[in-house]
């Protein structure tokens, strides 16, 4: 019965071929450092899932943002766990993505034909940092308020357009309800969609080119 169902699906979807090409593809001999890309992907999925569940209780308004997080932490069953995973997962993701990048650099894996994989990866690192920046404001506590004040002030340093960048980021001159709302929208919709698209391209290129061999000493 399951056999038949599988064959029916396989005939239409080529599940077997997908498995061979995605999971049984040949790999060069590697070390644990080669697993950091997968670790980044796992962390991204974890952040996506815990973020979705946080959205069930979080509200992005200056009146209630802080209280809603207090509610998640103290009153909702396992709220501390979901928020804790999202909080620490965010930090861990920045660290893991960065070490992944260092590994690719130090093993020269970014060279031909993988330059685009590298460029997209560099963008992924930047978007990960942007996720961290926008997510940091959402608890709306003293630390996040002042950290965002400083970060947007730093964004205002370029000559001529700096002031404009600051106003765009804050949605006005001061940090306000508008800032919280636009950071929230960026954090839960805009950046995740960019991340998903870039991750898709990144994974496609990795599967297309395969993983690189470690360079030999004379190369």
């Amino acid at each position: 019965m399951w056999r038949k169902l599988y064959e029916w699906l396989d005939e239409r979807l080529s599940l077997g071929a997908m498995y061979t090409n995605l999971l049984d593809r040949p790999e060069p001999r590697g070390t644990w450092w080669n697993t950091l890309g997968s670790a980044s992907l796992f962390l991204f999925i974890l952040q996506g899932l815990t973020g979705m569940f946080l959205l069930v209780y979080y509200t992005p308004s200056p009146d209630h943002a802080y209280d809603s997080i207090q509610y998640i932490m103290n009153d909702v069953a396992f709220g501390w766990l979901i928020r804790g995973m999202h909080h620490w997962g965010a930090t861990l993701m920045v660290v893991v993505v960065f070490i992944h990048m260092l590994r690719v650099f130090s093993t020269a894996s970014f060279k031909y034909p993988r330059e685009l994989t590298w460029v997209i990866g560099a963008l992924l690192f930047l978007v990960t940092l942007a996720m961290g920046l926008t997510g940091y404001l959402l608890p709306w506590n003293q630390k996040s308020y002042w950290a965002t004040t400083v970060a947007t002030q730093i964004a205002a340093t370029p000559p001529f357009i700096g002031e404009f960048i600051l106003k765009v980021m804050r949605g006005g001159n001061e940090l306000s309800a508008l800032t919280l709302q636009r950071f929230f929208a960026t954090h839960v919709w805009l950046l995740p969609l960019i991340l998903i698209s870039l991750i898709g391209a990144h994974l496609y290129l990795i599967i297309k080119h395969g993983e690189s061999n470690y360079p030999k000493a004379d190369e």
Partner: peptide, 15 residues
């Protein structure tokens, strides 16, 4: 390990 707490998390207000 993740699924069980999430169910509790979601139905908490009803409980």
């Amino acid at each position: 390990a993740l699924g069980a707490p999430i169910v509790g998390y979601l139905v908490d207000p009803a409980a």
